[in-house]
């Protein structure tokens, strides 16, 4: 029986029907473009997601700095990465794109500032 999922590679959101054998993808139906197939393969073999959250910032007008993972993270690492972020404290000023942490949950993937915040006071 086919496994159903929605392709999240673009806002069209095609409904994919996957045939999976031994944790390997054997066929996909319902994708309107090639990226759908790539998405289905990665979902079966190594699902990943971009992670966004906030970390504490001092000396800025806001208390929190939004952050984003530089690349998609393996899905099973998301909750561990979120926990690590709770302990991060940075000081203003920061620039959008600046590296906030080098290695998220042992994946080697960087965490980046998602906005610039000036130093105040």
């Amino acid at each position: 029986m086919g496994k159903r999922m929605i392709c999240i590679s673009c806002p069209k959101g095609c409904e994919l029907i996957l045939e999976v054998n031994n944790e390997k993808l054997t066929s996909v139906k319902g994708n309107d473009c090639k990226r759908g197939e790539m998405f289905a393969r990665s979902e079966v073999e190594n699902p990943t997601r971009v992670l966004t959250s906030v970390v504490t910032i001092r000396k800025a007008k806001s208390k929190l700095l939004p952050v984003i993972s530089a690349e998609p993270l393996p899905k099973q690492k998301i909750e561990e990465a979120i926990k690590e972020m709770r302990n991060i404290v940075v000081d203003a000023p920061v620039r959008e794109g600046e590296i906030i942490k080098d290695d998220l949950a042992g994946t080697g993937i960087k965490l980046l500032a998602a906005r610039s915040l000036k130093k105040i006071g």
Partner: peptide
């Protein structure tokens, strides 16, 4: 703060603050 902004304009999936 989630991603998914700017796909058409920047051909990238930015978060809201990055787009701004």
């Amino acid at each position: 703060i989630h991603d998914g902004f700017g796909l058409h304009r920047f051909k990238k999936q930015l978060s809201g603050p990055q787009y701004a």
